[in-house]
Amino acid sequence: MEKATLLDWYRQMVQIRRFEQKCAELYQLGKIGGFLHLYIGQEAVAVGSIAARQENDHIITAYRDHGHALAVGADMRRVMAEMLGKVTGVSKGKGGSMHLADVNKRFWGGYAIVGGHLPLAAGIALAEQYKGTDAAVLCYFGDGATNIGYFHESLNLAGVWKLPVLWICENNQYGMGTAVDRASAVPRIIDKATAYGMKGKQVNGMDVVEVYQATQKALKAIRSGKGPQFLEMITYRYEGHSMGDPLRYRTKDEVEKWRADDPIGILERRLLQEHNATQDELEAIDQAVEQEIAEAVKFAEESPLPSPEELFTDIYVEA
């Protein structure tokens, strides 16, 4: 891998982490409302896989969507404005944390019904197949979503119709507070994909380079006509399911063990040891990210709230 590429991924991962830490702070201050699901710990998945997409590929994900929004290149100021419910937000303040989207980046959004976006991904892929393009859909979901009917119906349809979907399961070990082996009859998620004609591959989701390479390979397989593909990214969420999670279902030791294999830490070591990056270089990136976040918060804070009329717009395209 090129050093410049790795540095860019480092910047993106730091950006996601710092952005979310800032969001947690703003949530505690009451400036962000509703639910807030943090992606911290899983940054390598969004950054590595989205880096492997070609320009016309689509991205769709669940409600833990800040990382994907930033990784597709959505304007951070507008993402932060959405968090604060401002009209300048990516979804005009109508979506919030769970419903970020950016039509120009082919990012179809975060969806808050577990599994609900999997058939949408199949449909988006169907439209590309129908139009005869080479575009694929990268569809992200958690381990918890693999137990719901939507998952099975969507994978089956994708298998039958050979839809260009890359199913990316972010196995962060818990569906809310329920561990994978307490909710799934098979502990290896990829075993479920085999039932629908997909071989599937487990990937170290803490290593952005591995994620990138596996995604690249899977997308190539889709484009060469091999049908839908399945990746299980083994990862971990450091924070609770959402803000206010009492974290009774896991030990501090377990969290510490995963933190030792931190995705940003792994990449940092690789940059320093294998690519002659300097601590100064990385710190400069960290500082630039801090600056960017400060500007995004300022933009969001100074942005106007949606006008009362906005309540009634966008219900229908045709009034």
């Binding site: 058939p119 949408l120 991904a121 988006i124 439209a127 129908y130 939507y150 349809l157």
Partner: peptide, 24 residues
């Protein structure tokens, strides 16, 4: 297009196809 007997994905895939430019 004949689908499996699977209403959740019939509904959802139609939504996705519509969002991405078709008229299912």
């Amino acid at each position: 297009k004949d689908t499996p007997i699977a209403e959740m994905v019939i509904g959802g895939a139609a939504v996705g196809a519509a969002m991405n430019g078709l008229r299912p």
